[in-house]
Design a protein around this nucleic acid. Structure first.
Lengths: 192, 192, 192, 192
DNA sequence: TATGAATGAGCGTTCATTCAT
DNA sequence: TATGAATGAACGCTCATTCAT
C-alpha cells in the first residue's frame, strides 16, 4: 500500500515538474505550482527530494534513462546495421515528437548550467548504450572511422535539431522527409 | 560624445549580461549583478531596455546577427561550393570554440521558452543568409534535394553538437578530427 | 514493562531535546531532529507532550528540580553555615561545569521569553529550598540582613557568571580560583 | 539628506528588532514583522544587513557599546575608587531597569548560541573598559587579588541577576535595597 | 541621463503538528 | 502505543522594477 502511494506521489511530482518546465522554463516553475499541479502539499515534495535542483536533476536522469531504454527496446540485432541504425534514428525522432514535453525538458536541461552539476561519470553512463552501439559499427568497419564521441555528437545533434524544427511548427515533416533526413545522416557516417 | 558614451554603457550592459548568463544561466543573473559588472546603476539599464526579458532578447538578436555576419565575412564566392561550405562549417565551429560565452548564451536561449517570445519572422530573418546559401546549392543540384529547412537543421545541429563536445572538455578535437567531421557532414548533404 | 518502556522513550526525548537545544538553541532544534536523535517517530513525541513548548517547559522544570536536589544532596546540617554555604557554592559551580548541556539549557531558557510561560508559583516552588536555606541564615544573623530574594539573586547570579566564564573556555579556573570566588561571595553576604 | 534618511531607516530597523526580540525572542520575531514595525519594506532591511543573523549581531554589538559607554560617561576619576565603583554598580542597575528592552535583548543574546558567532576578540574589545577599570584597582591593592576576569564575572553576574529580579516584577527594590546590594558586592571584592 | 535606495510580490524551504495505519 | 508521510502556514530572503533626486 505504502509503496503504491509513494510511487504515485513521486510520480505525480515528476510529471508536474516536467509539464511546468517544458512549458515555462526552470525559473518560471515555482515549487508551489508543482505542488498544486501534482496535487500534494508544498512540503511533501521535500520528503522525496532535497531541493528543487535535486528534483530537476533526478528528473533529468530518469528521462534520459527512459529515453535511451526506449531507443533500443525495439532494436532487432539480427538486422543489418544500416537497418538497425535507420530504426534507431527514425524511432528517436518519432518518439521525441510524440513526447515533446520530455524532449523540451531534456534539451533545456542539457543546455543550461544545470548540466554541470551532474557528474561526468553519470552522463557517460547514460550515454553508454548509444556509445557501444556506434563504436562497434566503427570497429567492424560499417561506419566511417571517426572517434565515437564525435559520431554520437553528429548523429544526436542532427536528430535533435530536426526534432526542434518539427516541434517548432514552422515546418511539417512528412515521412518521406524523415526518410531523407535518415539518408542524409547515413550517407555521412557510413564507411566508404 | 553622448552617443559614444551611450554606446559604451549599452555595450557594457550587454557584455555583463552575456558573461553572467553564459556562466550562471538566466535565473542566476540578477539585474543588480549585471549593473555591478557593467559598472552602471541598476536603474540605468532601464533607460536602455524596457525589461530584463527585452534585454536578453536584444542580446540574442545581436549575437545571432554578429554570428551569421561572421560566418560569411570570409566567404569567397569564387570558390567551389564544397570549398565554401567547408569553410562555412569549420569556421562556424572554430568561432564558437573561440567564443564559448556567446555560444553558450545562444544555445541556452534557443532551448528555453524565451525563444517563443521572439516572433517567427525575426527568427526567419536571422537565418535568411544561411537559408539562401544552402537553398541555392540545392537548386543548382550541388546538394541533395531536401527541404532547405531540414538541411539547415541537419548542418547546424550536427555542428552545434560537435562544438558542445569540444567545449565540455571531455574530448579534445584535433584539426584532423574537425576535417573528419566536415566530411561526415558533406558526404551526407552532397548530391549523389 | 510498559512503564519502563515509556520511561525510556520519554527520557530519550528529554535527552535529545536537551542535547539539541544546548548546542543549537530553541529554534534550531526541530522536532524531527529530536525524534531522530531520540530514535522515536516524530508523532510519538506528541503522545508524551502536547507541544514543543510544553516539552521544553517540562524539561526545564525537570532539570531545575534535579539541579536543586543535587545541591542539597551532600549538605551536612551539622556543619557551620559557612561550611555548608561553601559546599553549596562550590558544588553548584562544579556540577554545572560537569554538566554544561544542562547549564546551557537552563540559562538559555531562563533568559528567554519562554520563562514567562511558566507560572510564578512554579518558579517559587523550584527555588524554595535555596530560599529557605538562605533566609534562615539571615534570620539567625549569620548573613547580612538583606531580603533573601536579593541574596539569592546575588549568589546565584555571581555563580552562574563564573560558570559561564569557565565554560566559555577563555579562562581556565584553578581550584584556588574557585576558593577565591567563594570568599568573594562569602565576604559579601556574611554578617558584620 | 541621504545620510539622515539612511540613519533613520537603519535606526528604525534596529529599534523594531530590539522591541520584538526583547518581547518575543529571536524566533518569534520574523523579518516581516520587523519591517512592519520599522515602517519599511521587507527587502529594505537587506540593504542594511546581509541577513537576520547579521542584523541581530550588529544590534548586540551596538547595544553593548552603548551600554559600556554609558557606564563611564558620568564616572568621576577624582573620587575614591569605592565611590566610583558604587556609582558604576548602581548606575548599571538603574540604567538596565530604565531600559528593560535593551537589557532583555542583551541577556537573551549572551545566553544563546548566537554569542559564539561573535568572535572572541570582539567580545574582549567590548569588555575592555570594565576590565581596565577593575584591573587597575586590583593592581593598586584596592580590590582583592583575584584574576580580573573572575572579578568581572562576579560583579556583572550579581548585578544582572539583581536587575532580573527587579524586572521580573516579583520584588520591588527600594533605593536602600540597592544600597545594600552595592555593599554586598563591595564587601566581597574589596581588599582586606 | 544617471543614480541607487526602496519596494513588495513571490520564491524555495522548514517544521510543528496531524492522522490514517 | 507507535509510526512517519503528509500538511500548509510561515519563514528568510531575492530581485525586477520604480522613482525621487
Amino acid at each position: 500500500m505504502k509503496n503504491i502511494k509513494d510511487f504515485d506521489k513521486k510520480e505525480a511530482i515528476f510529471q508536474a515538474m516536467l509539464e511546468l518546465i517544458s512549458k515555462h522554463g526552470f525559473h518560471s516553475s515555482p515549487m508551489s505550482e508543482v505542488a498544486k499541479q501534482a496535487d500534494v502539499a508544498a512540503g511533501t515534495i521535500y520528503h522525496y527530494f532535497k531541493s528543487k535542483d535535486e528534483l530537476i536533476c533526478a528528473l533529468y536522469v530518469r528521462l534520459r534513462e527512459k529515453f535511451v531504454a526506449n531507443l533500443f527496446k525495439t532494436d532487432d540485432v539480427n538486422k543489418t546495421f544500416k537497418d538497425r541504425f535507420r530504426h534507431f534514428y527514425l524511432h528517436m525522432i518519432q518518439e521525441a515528437i510524440k513526447n515533446p514535453k520530455e524532449f523540451y525538458f531534456l534539451e533545456q536541461f542539457a543546455n543550461s548550467p544545470f548540466i554541470s552539476t551532474i557528474i561526468k561519470t553519470e552522463i557517460t553512463r547514460l550515454e553508454q548504450p548509444i556509445y557501444d552501439f556506434l563504436r562497434k559499427a566503427v570497429f567492424t568497419q560499417v561506419l566511417r572511422d571517426i572517434p565515437p564521441k564525435i559520431l554520437i555528437a553528429f548523429v544526436m545533434g542532427s536528430a535533435s535539431s530536426i526534432i526542434k524544427l518539427q516541434l517548432s511548427g514552422e515546418f511539417q515533416m512528412t515521412s518521406s522527409d524523415l526518410e531523407l533526413a535518415f539518408f542524409t545522416c547515413w550517407d555521412g557516417i557510413k564507411k566508404g
